[in-house]
């Protein structure tokens, strides 16, 4: 268990963040905080992808593909972190930003129509109509 915590803490952190994000999305009454929760949820997944890409050979951490990388002492190959997940994360960040922008635009419109950002108040206002 201790060893798991020491070596795989990135994955644990990711699932904790994932849980916080999902809880915020469900439990918070504030629409903006809900959207922040969704963002946190997505960020946890990005961290997960970055953690997946990490490579270690005989305790030597792999370098980034852009800067000069560490050499594998055994085979004189370069040890590189996998670049593919990084590309995925970059794309996913762009998608996430677009979603946040649309979400915030919708929240602005809801605020101008109902004058509230709280879900419970919103429910009351809509029930009255």
């Amino acid at each position: 268990m201790i060893e798991l915590l020491a070596t795989r803490y990135a994955y644990l952190l990711m699932f904790v963040l994932l849980g916080i994000g999902l809880y915020m999305t469900i439990a918070s009454q504030n629409l903006v905080k809900k959207l922040i929760g969704v963002n946190l949820f997505q960020t946890a997944i990005f961290l997960f992808f970055v953690a997946v890409a990490y490579v270690e050979v005989d305790g030597e951490p792999g370098g980034s593909p852009v800067v000069p990388a560490t050499e594998n002492p055994a085979s004189s190959d370069l040890i590189l972190a996998s670049p593919l997940p990084h590309v995925i994360v970059l794309t996913a960040i762009v998608v996430g930003i677009a979603l946040t922008a649309v979400g915030l635009a919708l929240i602005v419109r809801i605020y101008s129509e109902y004058g509230t950002l709280r879900e419970d108040t919103l429910r009351e206002v809509r029930a009255d109509e």
Binding site: L35, V38, G103
Partner: peptide, 13 residues
């Protein structure tokens, strides 16, 4: 707008 935001949050998750 409310329906779209609901869809956005659930759909994104």
């Amino acid at each position: 707008a409310v329906a779209a935001l609901k869809y956005l949050i659930i759909g994104t998750v």
